[in-house]
Amino acid sequence: MTISQVLFIVISLVVLGGGVMVVTARNLFHAALFLIVSFFGVTGLYVLLDAGFFAAAQFLVYIGAISILIIFAVMLTRGVQLAQPANSQWPAALVVSVIVFAIMALMLGPVAVTIGQRQFGSVSWPNVVEGQPAPAVPDDHLVRLGQSFVDFNQYGAAFLLTAVLILVAMVGAIWVARDRALKDVMEERAELAAEEAQEAMLAGPVQQPLPLAETRSAEAPAASVAHH
């Protein structure tokens, strides 16, 4: 056993153990914390794969941003946090997952298995020789990655499309999660202002109508998200 192998096994146990806790934890907040544990283990796997840049990106994007987003969502939907963790079809889901894993392990594993006429397992990948070290990573692999993003013969178009996708997704997320439609807010404010103007007219010229800002702040607490 080399040190790398021991590290791999430990990190894999962290990843898979965290993953199992994510899908079985009763408390959704604990599930979100175990998701961070699992992401952290995946960071370690990237380090083992000599992909340091992606380890850092995993740390920043998944642990720093996505899990915080998930924890926010868990807290904003707090009333249902402790609900039953699994639905009624969980035994079927477990069977399906185990079967899918068995098929994938059969296909990818090192042991050749013959079922009927077909042989599965012990796939030979190009450049992968059993017992030989993997080819060395070139020192400029990140330079090549960056150049492939700006080269329209490689991934330039895909890179631009991805940038548009994330922009549209962010604007869409803000629009979907907004408190109320802006149109409704404006209509309500106009109605309130009209009512007050009418009242002020009936009461006489001495009484001034409430400023718009005060009516807005008076209705604001009712419109904000209820948290328990």
Binding site: V23, I70, A73, V74, P85, L94, S97
Partner: peptide
């Protein structure tokens, strides 16, 4: 493959949509 199948089980069996996203 194991991590994928754990995630698949979570998507199929969880009762909470945020857990499905996890």
């Amino acid at each position: 493959a194991a991590l994928f199948c754990i995630g698949l089980y979570g998507v199929l069996a969880r009762k909470n949509a945020i857990a499905i996203l996890m």
